[in-house]
């Protein structure tokens, strides 16, 4: 999984930080999202997916790594 955020879209509601605090944080100067870990370990994927689902501004995009064959 690769995590992308759109800082232009972000409205600073902070729900991603509550869902996945090891992956998302907020910039000190304006509370806009920053990514702490763009390739989080598997055990955090569910929390990251929840963060993306509840983001009010649809500012979190998740790129799933293709399955290895």
């Amino acid at each position: 999984m690769r995590v992308h955020v759109d800082q232009e879209k972000c409205c600073g509601a902070g729900s991603c930080v509550l869902s996945a605090p090891d992956v998302f944080d907020q910039r000190d100067e304006d509370g806009i999202v920053i990514v702490l870990d763009a390739q989080p370990p598997a055990e955090l994927h569910e929390a990251v997916r929840e963060a993306a689902a509840i983001c009010p501004a649809a500012a979190i995009l998740l790129e799933q790594a293709p399955e290895r064959v």
């Binding site: 600073g12 902070g14 509550l18 907020q26 100067e29 304006d30 509370g31």
Partner: peptide, 16 residues
């Protein structure tokens, strides 16, 4: 709206 809101978001961010 975003211009004004961003003047306030840092005050209500999670760590603050």
């Amino acid at each position: 709206h975003a211009r004004l809101r961003r003047m306030l978001t840092a005050d209500f961010m999670v760590k603050k």
